[in-house]
């Protein structure tokens, strides 16, 4: 059984293997970075470390997420980040990344092997960043392909 941290972006419920999540924090002072790619939401100061924040919604080809009271940032783990980037992330392993999401859900347990291929009616962007779907008690859980998510371009 794997455990998934779940969160909402728009209508969808997404999941990440909880071992790849470093922590989840509330949104505060995001410094936007002019001239950066659209899906780079900006930078935050996480106890002295600068974390780059991705807007998951933009990454998936939708409008930027508005910041609401329920918004959170899912900080991804260093190791997971480094291991999955396979050198494609030119910034090296020191980069901390966070995902801006609409709301945080429960941690759900599910059998990773029961994940199904993502549905066919996806946009190109979605197809690239989603790795599968899992049926859980909490509903249909969309699994993210972190490696692609963090690769540039």
């Amino acid at each position: 059984m794997s455990q998934y941290a779940t969160f909402n972006v728009g209508e969808r419920l997404f999941g990440l293997d909880i071992l790849g999540v470093r922590e989840i924090i509330r949104v505060f002072n995001i410094t936007s970075v002019p001239r950066s790619e659209a899906h780079i939401r900006g930078l935050i100061n996480l106890r002295g470390q600068i974390v780059t924040i991705l807007d998951l919604s933009v990454r998936l080809g939708h409008a930027p997420l508005p910041v609401k009271d329920s918004s959170h940032i899912v900080i991804l783990k260093h190791g997971a980040n480094a291991a999955q980037s396979n050198g494609r992330n030119q910034g090296g392993t020191q980069d901390l990344m966070g995902l801006l999401v609409d709301a945080i859900g429960d941690v759900v347990e599910a059998e990773a092997s029961r994940a199904e291929a993502p549905p066919a009616n996806l946009t190109d962007a979605e197809e690239r960043f989603l790795s599968g779907v899992l049926k859980t008690d909490a509903g249909l859980l969309v699994l993210l392909n972190v490696q692609e998510l963090l690769s540039s371009g």
Partner: peptide, 18 residues
Amino acid sequence: KPLSGFIQGTKCFSGATI
């Protein structure tokens, strides 16, 4: 502080600081 690889492409910045 060095820039993350994701925003190095912008060229206008040499780093970030707190």
